[in-house]
Amino acid sequence: MNLSQEEWAEQFKNDDNAFLLDVRTPEEFEEVHIPGATNIDIHKGQGFVYEVDELDKSKNFYVYCRSGARSAKACEVLNQLGVANTYNLLGGILDWKGETE
């Protein structure tokens, strides 16, 4: 599900079952990321699938990338792998006004 910056931030903040996933490259992640995020690069292809398969699929996945395109694709893949709740950050970290590190 695509959420606006405000909706995504508010929902994430109030979700006790949230898992924060950054699907950008490790280099992008090193530059800047949202605190608490796990980085799994969607460009790894099958490697992305293997790593995601190890995660707790009962979590609510809050997914972001640079602008929202890769994370939208990642949400589709997560859904196919059995994750029921995925939330894509529209505008990605480019539009993010929240905390970063």
Rank of each mutant, 00 (worst) to 15 (best):
N14M: 04
D56T: 03
Y87M: 06
Q46R: 11
Q80K: 12
L3K: 13
E27I: 09
I40W: 01
Y64V: 02
K13E: 15
L55M: 10
R70D: 13
I93T: 12
D56F: 02
D56N: 14
N39D: 11
K97A: 14
V32L: 14
Q11P: 00
A69I: 13
W96I: 02
C75T: 14
E7P: 07
G91N: 07
E7W: 01
V49H: 00
D95W: 00
D22G: 08
G68P: 02
K73E: 14
L55T: 09
Y50I: 13
L81E: 11
V83R: 00
Y87P: 12
L3C: 05
Q46Y: 09
P26A: 08
S71H: 03
L21V: 11
A74P: 11
L89A: 08
L81G: 04
E31G: 08
E99L: 05
L89G: 11
Y62G: 06
Y64G: 02
R66N: 12
Y87Q: 09
N85F: 01
E51H: 03
A84K: 15
N14T: 14
W96Y: 05
A9S: 12
L81D: 07
Q5T: 10
E30T: 14
F61R: 00
N88R: 07
A72N: 10
L78R: 02
G45L: 07
K13M: 13
G98Y: 00
V52G: 10
G36S: 04
E6L: 09
L21Y: 10
P35N: 01
Q11E: 14
K57V: 01
L20N: 10
L94D: 14
L89Y: 06
S71L: 03
E28K: 01
T38Y: 08
G92C: 09
E76N: 07
D95L: 13
N39L: 04
R70E: 11
V32G: 12
D95N: 15
K44P: 06
